[in-house]
Design a protein around this nucleic acid. Structure first.
Lengths: 123, 123
DNA sequence: CCCCATGTTCAATGTTTATTGAACTATCAA
DNA sequence: TTGATAGTTCAATAAACATTGAACATGGGG
């Protein structure tokens, strides 16, 4: 369990699998949340997504996102840190991830993308 | 049966439904083929997709594409003419359709996008 | 060491999905 | 009318999917 799980190489990333991943509301929310993180730490751990569902259900979606090549998982102690594979995605499917994330942002309330503002922030 | 089937309005088009539609290889091929047609006649009829599957299976996929808002069906005699709802899609999700079609084009052989050049393949 | 927190894996569930063929509807042409 | 053409709808089936909870593995801190 401490080993890094398998990831597809850049060239192995398949368009239908990526689109299928992004078509699920929970997975789209995960990707969206990771995209918001770009430039900040660029990484989030599983627990940061707990608002989106139960642990085992999330693990299921994480696996799909990993297998599709959308995100990468790094194991550190008892935590798994995930980041978007933006470089690989952009190289493979230019403009796609950007268009999806922007489209999701436009519909942020229609979709239930609770990006970083799930707790009522003071100040 | 002669009535035009129902289509969602532009605002009713939902991102997850669109992505889900595009994640199916047959539907992606249909959309790709329609996209190639942009600027030509911009319309194709059901029979033009016969290489992609059986009639009833295609009708099923056509319905999904229509319900998702990706394409529009126009009834003319015994024919149904379809076209991409590119304006609506571009207004709703800027850059998305373009990125998907270009990504599909890049993988045209990996995916089985027999755009306009398909010979009757021997089993 | 033992316990707890973090996450994964497994088995079971009910739902959705893609696919097939047969039956059906509608239009056109002779 | 009859028949051919173009597509849809229906019923059935098998596969895939999302979701749940329980069991499991791993690492950190007392």
């Amino acid at each position: 369990m401490s080993r890094t799980p398998p990831h597809p190489t850049r060239e192995q990333i398949e368009l239908p699998m990526v689109l299928d991943c992004l078509s699920d509301p929970i997975r789209l929310a995960i990707v969206y949340q990771l995209a918001q993180q770009q430039g900040v730490s660029s990484e989030l751990c599983c627990g940061d997504f707990n608002a989106l569902g139960g642990k085992s259900n999330l693990a299921y979606h994480f696996a799909k996102l990993r297998e599709s090549g959308l995100m990468q998982t790094r194991v550190a102690g008892t935590n798994r840190f995930m980041r978007l594979r933006r470089e690989d995605l952009d190289a493979r499917f230019p403009g796609l991830l950007d268009a999806v994330v922007k489209s999701a942002a436009k519909d942020a309330d229609r979709l239930q993308l609770l990006s970083e503002c799930e707790a009522p922030a003071a100040g």
